[in-house]
């Protein structure tokens, strides 16, 4: 059976998450098709056609799919699903918004955030904030799955898939896009960054997050945050790392003024090397940190920036 991957894209570019999802599709095995839905997505489709392992790219280029609103996008996927054994998408806010809706339209379960493929019908996924790993088996003829990027290494870009237009246009009178307020940043995307520097409530206020900027600049890092820092209004919501925020697994994660609640650990404990800077030597973050520095962040951050 073939596998259909819903492409993730932002700002007119294919998101790297798609290459991770294609890797999961390869682990399942079968012909891999990628669906690029959106408006003016020709360039994105061409980028998707270059992904290793992709046989065909389907392009649904229509105003109906602009901003990938759930109602039309799910209708489109549901329309195409008949030809496939698996539907996959990134466990991004888009994938999480759309895929369960498709699954219900098809009267099948959805399997969220898989981190490993055991066989075409059996997958591993974290539950309880990552405190347990479940192996689950689906007997549905159509398997609808979101993929956690950190579980699969991205495929390369040596492919040359055929590109085919999809003419189905879903009509949608129920939802309208009004606007988007997206954070503009020159830093790498949180989920894709090799180094992440995150601040917590200990940062004290939003202004103090600037102390992380210089360090992030020197390391080419993305900046993340704990829920407490977001709730307190120090930084925007899209920076939250954790069970209910973004899941990251960079080469290096530096947690500054973060206590290490299980919900935060759920989002970063698969990082290769973890550094914690916290003035409380009992903070649970030290239990997962490879290198812990018990210190006042206001003293050590300027020094760290200078010496890096």
């Amino acid at each position: 059976m073939s596998i259909l991957v819903l492409a993730e894209h932002h700002d007119g570019a294919l998101a790297v998450a798609t290459a991770h999802v294609v890797a999961a599709a390869q682990a399942i095995g079968g012909d891999i098709h990628v669906l690029v839905a959106g408006e003016n997505v020709g360039a994105i489709a061409e980028a998707a056609a270059k992904l290793d392992g992709v046989a065909k790219v389907l392009v649904a280029d229509n105003a109906a799919y602009a901003h990938l609103l759930a109602e039309p996008t799910a209708a489109l996927l549901s329309e195409l699903a008949g030809d496939y054994g698996h539907l996959l998408a990134a466990a991004s806010t888009n994938g999480k918004n759309v895929l369960p809706r498709v699954a219900a339209l098809k009267d099948v379960a959805q399997i969220s955030e898989i981190i490993a493929v055991e066989s075409p019908d059996t997958f591993k996924r974290p539950i309880y904030a990552g405190n347990a790993i479940a192996t689950v088996q689906s007997e549905d003829t159509l398997k609808v799955i979101t993929v956690r990027s950190t579980g699969f290494d991205a495929v390369g870009e040596g492919g040359s898939a055929t590109i085919e237009a999809v003419n189905f246009v879903a009509d949608n009178t129920q939802s309208t896009f009004i606007k988007e307020e997206l954070a503009k940043s020159d830093r790498p995307e949180l989920a894709a960054a090799k180094v992440v520097v995150s601040g917590g409530r200990g940062m004290g206020n939003g202004e103090n997050f600037k102390l992380l900027d210089g360090i992030a600049d020197k390391l080419g890092a993305a900046i993340g945050a704990s829920r407490a820092a977001v709730d307190a209004g120090f930084v925007p919501n899209d920076m939250q790392v954790g069970q209910t925020g973004k899941i990251v697994a960079p080469e290096l994660y530096i947690a500054v003024g973060i206590s290490g609640a299980i919900q935060h650990l759920a989002g970063m404990k698969d990082s290769k090397v973890i550094v914690a800077i916290n003035k409380d030597e009992e903070a649970p973050i030290f239990q997962v940190a490879d290198y812990g520095l018990v210190a006042d962040l206001f003293q050590v951050l300027p020094e760290l920036e200078q010496k890096l």
């Binding site: 379960a109 405190n131 347990a132 192996t135 689950v136 404990k269 973890i274 030290f286 997962v288 290198y291």
Partner: peptide, 18 residues
């Protein structure tokens, strides 16, 4: 209808050094 075949603890991280 999704069968729960197995539930395991995650790989434990070794606490490092200060």
């Amino acid at each position: 209808k999704v069968k729960l075949l197995k539930v395991e603890p995650p790989a434990e991280r070794q606490g490092g050094v200060k």
